[in-house]
Nucleic acid binder design. Structure first.
Lengths: 129, 129
DNA sequence: CCAGCTGTTATAGCAATACTATAACAGCTA
DNA sequence: TAGCTGTTATAGTATTGCTATAACAGCTGG
């Protein structure tokens, strides 16, 4: 798990951390039970305040991706194999996908290429498990 | 073109307007040359300040989706048929797709269903043209 | 037991963002 | 001329993102 930040991005730092962790779990680099660095440690590593890391972890906990104890620290809770999501989640997620796909199509990306890229990404997930 | 806002959403209003317009173009509801309402008119219709609409239009113009003249107002410039995007755009877009797909997989949405939903959405675009 | 780590909470400050509001100017059009 | 349009400026408010400092509680290794 190596996280690289883009401090010039418009995407908030805590969101970038959250995104990288989610991707790492999808990739299988992080699995159920995997230990994440402490907020203070990761803050030092990334050169940012530990409160910002805390916010990212808080977001991940809210999403059910990780579990945070005073005892065990932050560990991965959710996996691709953890069971199906709430139906309401799928709907909300799909509306975000719809916006993203619409953008690509409007920008002229051929639907066939959209499908190809999507399949390539999906294939790269959890194939390392 | 009917735009509905969610004033309680965490997504900024101007972003919601931008998203709905992009989706409308992808759907074929708005085509190349289609006229968009004036910023003041849409502001009244949506019950918001016209500067917020202006910001959304500005974003759409920056993205190359619409064209804004003092003379003709805002009209759709870009279509699914307007030609291929910059290669750099495709890469940046793919990284956003990657994050979104990773999230779905982590939340337990089966990859097969992800593909199905993606194909359904793509199929709904521009099929009305 | 003590030192050092951890998570958690509180408080504060600063810069930037989102939205609203009012105003004014310029150009097109009926 | 009147009324629409886009454009620009300025300003105020609330919220967000990030940083900073501090303090407390619980776990753990010496």
């Amino acid at each position: 798990m190596l996280i690289t930040l883009d401090l010039f991005s418009e995407v908030p730092i805590y969101q970038q951390i959250r995104d990288r962790v989610v991707e790492a779990v999808a990739d299988g680099v992080l699995r159920e039970g995997s230990q994440l660095p402490s907020t203070r440690q990761l803050g030092v590593d990334l050169g940012i305040n530990f409160h910002t890391v805390n916010k990212a972890y808080d977001l991940l906990r809210t999403e059910g991706v990780i579990l945070v104890n005073r005892k065990s620290g932050a560990i991965v809770r959710r996996d691709a194999s953890s069971g199906p999501p709430e139906p309401e989640y799928a709907d909300e997620w799909q509306s975000r996908l719809r916006t993203l796909l619409a953008e690509a199509v409007v920008q002229g990306l051929p639907p066939s290429e959209v499908t190809a890229r999507s399949n390539a990404l999906l294939g790269s997930f959890t194939s390392a498990s």
